[in-house]
Design a protein around this nucleic acid. Structure first.
Length: 209
DNA sequence: TAAAAGATCCCCT
DNA sequence: GGGGATCTTTTAT
């Protein structure tokens, strides 16, 4: 009946952050929301690091990014452009500030709830396409900032790892600093990775220039 | 106290 | 493919 949800262990969040961004593909983001269980397969993610001009933590600890400096395996959720929520999984030990931004999911469970949360989106594959869209679809808000992803109600659970031949590594989306760092990963075959995001060329192609 | 920028999305052409 | 919406957070004055 229901999917079996086993949280990723703390060790997952202690591996190097760029590895974690690669390995999080195929894992499951699940939220036991007030409306019911919603879950999706992670198909796009980016790494943000302490020494990284594009990271919110680059200039040190602030009120907004506090949970980035907190314990690994917890959520860092922030509001962008005054409108949209985005969710990260915090990596590295407490006191450091790395995180993995979750950028897209393939809906698995609670699709009718996602549709209720995003009534204008008719394409199921696009319900959770984009970091703000997926938070909107699942009902994730800043109220969950700092939440423990290993104990719920918001968790990242073990899924089917994405094989290398189906993973593409590129530069990150929507940033103005450190644009050259290839810290974004996505599942090539997924219909939930947005068109705009697909337009980024794989590094192998870029290097040919 | 003011100003600018921002890990985005949607609608329009 | 381009620009506006929208407003919080941060940084500069």
């Amino acid at each position: 009946m229901g999917i079996e949800l086993i949280s990723l262990p703390i060790e997952f969040y202690l591996q190097p952050t760029v590895h974690a961004a690669r390995e999080i593909l195929g894992q499951i983001l699940a939220f036991q929301s007030p409306k019911g269980l919603v879950a999706g397969r992670i198909v796009e993610a980016e790494a943000y690091r302490l020494i990284d001009p594009a990271s919110h933590s680059f200039r040190g600890k602030t009120l907004r990014n506090a949970s980035m400096w907190g314990p690994p395996g917890h959520a860092y959720i922030y509001l962008i452009y005054g409108i949209h929520w985005c969710i990260n999984a915090v990596t590295q030990p407490e006191g450091e500030s790395d995180a993995v931004l979750i950028r897209a999911l393939e809906p698995i469970k609670g699709i009718e709830i996602m549709q209720e949360n995003r009534p204008t989106e008719r394409n199921i594959n696009r319900l959770c396409s984009g970091p703000a869209n997926l938070c909107n679809a699942l009902g994730i808000t800043g109220a969950l900032d700092g939440a423990d992803l290993m104990n719920g109600p918001l968790i990242i659970a073990q899924g089917e790892p994405a094989p290398d031949e189906n993973v593409i590594q590129t530069t990150r989306i929507g940033i103005s600093n450190a644009q050259e760092l290839p810290w974004r990963f996505y599942v090539k075959s997924s219909p939930s990775v947005s068109k705009r995001d697909r337009s980024k060329e794989p590094m192998a192609e870029r290097k040919k220039r």
